[in-house]
Nucleic acid binder design. Structure first.
Length: 263
DNA sequence: ATGGCTATCATTGATAGA
């Protein structure tokens, strides 16, 4: 039976609740990874997801960040804290990470830090977070086990992932160091599922609210599904659904999805 | 245009996003 998995930076689950629920229903999504939910767990709208038959796990905080997963199959929590490997940082109160197991699949839902302005402490935090993610992924990686990293990576990895990279030269999303660590993560043995199917396409997953970016298609592709070889073997289809971005009161991101043969 | 918009929290302004 095919399994359809999506990732969507919703930019506030409260503002986007009805459109997210409708999109899940219309797109026949089995598992959805959400980012920028912007609410504490007590206030997460669990009921609305439960009513359409989904189990939910949320890891949020007040005002900013926040990740959540909703699934037709039981969600088994593995980890909601990305471990530290750098002794300089002793705590991290930003809700950006969820590692779960659903059926036989290890799934990580992530919201990688933006990092602007660079250089500066926010960029240092981003790079440190990427190093932690690399270490964690190396630790759990097994090429014979299905593993999916999905979410908002806040990285413009290739020139084809941006309408005009000349405007992003000094941005934290495109700096050489950012792309170097993204490459290091991929080199553990993961595949960018979108690029596997569309090696040369220019399609985006984010358009700024400002300056008519959506109307001009001034977008960037920063939401990814990185998948292990075991998932590649069962991959049926991949896509970016632009339609939610064109609706009233949209998120500035649009959902991405993969379909795999699982059972 | 170091601009343009959207969301949150707190109280009409500051902060963050990318």
């Amino acid at each position: 039976m095919p399994l359809k998995i999506a990732s969507f930076n919703v930019n506030s689950i409260k503002m986007r609740l009805q459109s997210v629920i409708n999109w899940i229903d219309q797109s026949e999504i089995d598992i959805i990874l959400m980012q920028e939910t912007k609410t504490i767990d007590e206030n997460f709208p669990y009921k609305d997801f439960n009513e359409i038959g989904l189990d939910v796990l949320a890891s949020g905080q007040k005002s900013y960040n926040g990740v959540a997963i909703a699934s037709k199959f039981k969600i088994n929590e593995i980890n909601r804290i990305l471990p530290f490997y750098n002794q300089d940082i002793i705590e991290d109160d930003q809700a950006r990470f969820l590692h779960v197991k659903i059926e036989n699949i290890n799934i990580i839902c992530l919201y990688l830090p933006n990092g602007n302005p660079a250089p500066g402490p926010k960029y240092d935090y981003k790079i440190n977070w990427m190093k932690r993610l690399i270490k964690y992924t190396e630790k759990i990686y097994d090429k014979n086990e299905p593993l999916i990293l999905g979410g908002d990576f806040n990285v413009i990895q290739e020139d084809n992932d941006c309408y005009d990279v000349s405007k992003w030269q000094d941005d934290a999303l495109y700096l050489k160091k950012t792309r170097k660590y993204m490459k290091e993560l991929i080199n553990i043995g993961l595949i960018d599922s979108y690029r596997l199917k569309y090696p040369n396409s220019k399609e985006y997953s984010f358009w700024d609210y400002q300056a008519g970016a959506w109307q001009k298609d001034n977008g960037i592709r920063i939401d990814f599904f990185l998948i292990s070889p075991e998932i590649v073997d069962t991959l049926i289809d991949v896509g970016i659904d632009k339609s939610p971005r064109g609706q009233e009161k949209p998120s500035d991101h649009t959902p991405i999805w993969i379909e795999i043969e699982n059972f």
